[in-house]
Design a protein around this nucleic acid. Structure first.
Lengths: 174, 174
DNA sequence: ACATTATAGTTAGCCAGCTAATTATGTCAA
DNA sequence: TTGACATAATTAGCTGGCTAACTATAATGT
């Protein structure tokens, strides 16, 4: 499953937040401000990533599939597993793989042991594409994060872990 | 402009990250790990938000429009301004407003001074919808963030600010 | 053994973003 | 004043997610 998130260019002022908190007593002002900023920065990062990938004729979904394949020792996986790891439906994965196979970046290989299943393998061209994209991506990401100390990087991951854990409370009734 | 981001259910192990870093010297392992976790948590939050809103028959885009209107003292704005604040195209805003107007949550009011423009106003029904949704949303958000100390909330916002600032480096050539 | 159920992948059609073009109106300079 | 340009909103058509339904194959239980 994919997420559609907006850019939220306009964060609320403290005064507006206070006004909302007055009308809605459940509001936790610092929680809201942190949440909105988190969404905004993440969205900006993803938009920037899209821009970077588009220069290499790639879309984010297909690029992630290539990366997932490269993570495997034998550069191979199956549509179902890839779909699960990427958080998309199997139907969506079929479309992603169609595009990648058409571009010669992956190939479908039939599996005799289980004729329902298909192996997906990163091709040499797929690896070459990653070798072209990843240094660009990593360089930008390094520059983007260069202002953060190791301490801050650890803090960030710890904080995100707490939020992630707290999110189980989101579905407190249903 | 909206962002499409995947759920990234499967973060790379330290061992995989090391292997990538060996092939691509530009890689900054802790930067990558922080980045991926940031994307994942933000995506999970947005998916959870979608689920919450859907119980009130709302989609995220339309809901943000209602909030933007409620932030205004006169509960009024224009399609162009709303589109800019939300980070979507004006064409997209037309569609969002069509849906909201059809549901009676906003109304279009013609502007005599500039006959090209239209005023968008939150209706009583729109305010009532927000009054139904916001306490639910704020309560969930509070629970979700309850594990974070005030210190951590400040740290998070500071860290996100640094990333946001560093992101100008993303487009270092184009 | 064979009917039922589960699983892998695909197809068909929907939905809400997007870009590009269109209409209408306002602004400004020669 | 009028021709060129700018701006506000909309429409038309594209794209890449999604769900639901389908085919084929495997596993299971009586």
């Amino acid at each position: 499953m994919w997420l559609i998130m907006l850019q939220l260019r306009d964060l609320p002022t403290q005064e507006v937040l206070q006004r909302f908190a007055q009308r809605y007593p459940a509001a936790d002002v610092t929680a809201i401000a942190s949440f909105l900023m988190l969404l905004r920065v993440a969205t900006d990062l993803s938009v920037a990533l899209d821009a970077c990938l588009s220069k290499h004729d790639l879309l984010q979904g297909r690029w992630w599939v290539l990366i997932l394949l490269m993570r495997e020792a034998d550069l191979t996986s199956t549509p179902s597993v890839l779909a699960e790891k990427l958080g998309v439906t199997r139907a969506t994965m079929t479309g992603l793989l169609d595009g990648l196979e058409q571009g010669g970046l992956v190939q479908r290989i039939s599996v005799p042991e289980d004729r329902r299943s298909v192996k997906i393998q990163l091709t040499a061209a797929g690896q070459a594409k990653l070798d072209a994209v990843m240094p660009d991506y990593y360089t930008r990401l390094r520059l983007c994060m260069r202002g953060l100390s190791e301490q801050q990087r650890n803090d960030l991951q710890a904080i995100l872990g707490v939020i992630d854990h707290g999110m189980s409370a989101w579905d407190f009734n249903q």
